[in-house]
Every structure is written in C-alpha cells, then in structure tokens.
Design a protein around this nucleic acid. Structure first.
Lengths: 164, 164
DNA sequence: ACCAAATACTTGGACGTCAAAGTATTCGGA
DNA sequence: TCCGAATACTTTGACGTCCAAGTATTTGGT
C-alpha cells in the first residue's frame, strides 16, 4: 500500500519539469486534500462504533453548546458552513436515530428548530470522547505543526471571507 | 454570509468550556476540513470552464507526466491515493469525453491501461493554466504559511504510512 | 392593505467517494 | 500440473455534498 516515495513530492517534481508553475501552491492544495482524506477516514472510523459520522457529530456538538440545546436549521448551516440541503439531510438522519427532534418556531412558521434529545446529548459526549481518543485524527502531527497549520488556514479562511 | 466571528475559534471556546479536551487537535482537524472545502470550491469553479474537476484533472496530469502517456488503472489509484472504484468512475468519464482511452495490457489480461489522447493532453495543459491562475485555490495564504502547511501535513502523511 | 422580494427549509438530480461483492486472470507452492 | 491465493478491474449500493427549483411564510415599500 505504502509507496516507496512521497507521491506529492513526486508530483511537484513532475510539475516543475513540465514548467507548469505555482508549484508550492499546487503542493499545498494537494497536501490539504490528502490530509482531509486521512482525517475523514480516521474520524469516521472512530465515530462508527458510536453510529455517527463527522457531520452528524458536529451538529450534535453544536447543539449541546447552546443554552437550550436547540438551534434553527439555518443557523446550524451558518455555523458549520454547510449547504442548507446538507443540514436537512443530516438532521433527518439524526432525527431518525432519535438524537434530535424538529420543533416549529413559535412565531415564525418558516423556521424549524433542531432540538437535542437526552439520547443525543449522551451521544455527543461519547463521540467527543472517541474523537479525543484518536486526537481528532491528527495523531502524528506535533503540537507545533498543528499550531502552524491552524494559523496558515486561518489566513486562508480569512481571505475567503469566512468571518469579518 | 460571513459571520461576525470565527466559527472555528468559537467552537474551540465551547470545547474548552465543556471540558472536552484535545482542543488543539480538534481545531486542526476542523481547520483542515474547512480548508479542503474552500479549495474544492475554488478549484472546481476554475476547472469547470475547461469541463474538468480536480479528480479528472489529476488523472490527466498524472498521465501527461509519464513517458508514453499511459498507466495501468491500478497505478493511477496508487499514485493519486484513491479507491479503485473511483478510478474506474473517473476514467469512464474521461473516456466518454475523449480525453483518455482504455487499452488492454499486451501480456497481462487483467490489466487495463488508461492512455492519454491528444485532446486529453491539451485539456491537461489548459487545466494546469487555469489552476495556476487561481494559485490552486490557496490565494490568501502566504508563501511561509504554505511551506509550513506542507511540512506539517508531511508529518501527518508520513505517520499515516503514505510512503516509506 | 397589497404584492413583489426576501427568507427558511425541503425535494430531486448530478456527482464523487468508499466498501463489498463479482468476474477474470495470473501466481506460486505442493 | 493443479488449485487455492493474490491481483486487477468493474459493478452495485449506501452516503454525503452541492445546486437548482419548489413550497410556505414573512417583510417591506407603496
């Protein structure tokens, strides 16, 4: 499975040879893509025994941080930065599993709340423990590297307009 | 769309308050996830006019770096680190668009080559130009940050057994 | 008060990814 | 030589994501 060489380094060499430019940018983009792939694999594996995946866990965690364990679906999408359709999908599944339930907004009938159930709150805690156990998938990355990554990506997110 | 605060920083605070631990790891994982989302969006948008996406472009680029513009499907998967089924899928699409064609291996009938066509080679070059134009999606990230990210993720990939 | 525009969510469709199973072929030890 | 194990790819199916369109409701300007 493991190659004898670093495939990203190899790609960078080829890129240079072809005179294609933006090599460091290409390397950064490819690295992030691969990192994401590694993390997703590890995280989903760690959450599977708790019958969650990262998206579902994120919703439960977000809800558990609110005062009342409830949030309009739209807010969930804003906070987690995912498409409204994805929120609907994720909440459907959480609701089917009994971790969340939908409730109408008392005055604005367009709005629906996702409300954490007791089971959902327990599930969020078990998920958090499972993720902490595997260091959120970044095992192998030193503390200094994590900080550097966070800082670098903070620049990217800022430039992308994630926040003011 | 843009929030008034950094949602990842917010999550870290909540995490800390809840006493959930591994906060820096959580932040790193979340950052990488978000970075990937930003890059994917930008890259796919840049490649759309060339009627490619990142996966398809990667295959064309990889083939164009080989001596004869051909590689067994399995090797493609190894190099790009994607599932065999994804390679089949991607090559199907490239073949339908006339950028690649399948050819049988002369001696091992289990093996199939993906062979770059002339149109495919041109398309790879246009794709590379389009990506260089947008700095592979990492615009906003300084050179120092890109290098730091590459180094940090190199650690992660190494620990994950990506190469020897 | 009215009605077009904005907002909130859901639905349906196109894709991409991976896992598991299926088919074909080659390898390697008894 | 034979046959089980390994290899290479495809197929099928479960998911997750986004976009575009559709429904319902509320806002806001006249």
């Amino acid at each position: 499975m493991a190659l004898e060489f670093d495939p990203i380094e190899e790609a960078a060499e080829n890129w240079r040879s072809a005179g294609w430019g933006a090599v460091d940018a290409m390397t950064a983009a490819t690295s992030i893509t691969r990192a994401h792939q590694i993390l997703t694999g590890r995280i989903d594996a760690a959450l599977a025994p708790v019958s969650l995946n990262f998206s579902r866990f994120e919703v439960l965690a977000l809800l558990s941080f609110t005062k009342e364990g409830r949030l309009p679906l739209g807010k969930v999408g804003d906070r987690l930065q995912v498409h409204p359709a994805s929120v609907t999908n994720t909440v459907n599944r959480l609701e089917a599993d009994g971790y969340v339930r939908r409730e109408p907004h008392p005055t604005d009938r367009r709005t629906t709340f996702a409300v954490l159930t007791a089971a959902g709150r327990r599930r969020a805690e078990r998920g958090a423990a499972a993720l902490a156990d595997i260091d959120f998938g970044v095992a192998g990355m030193g503390g200094r590297s994590r900080a550097a990554t966070n800082k670098a990506i903070h620049e990217l997110r800022s430039a992308a307009g994630d926040f003011v």
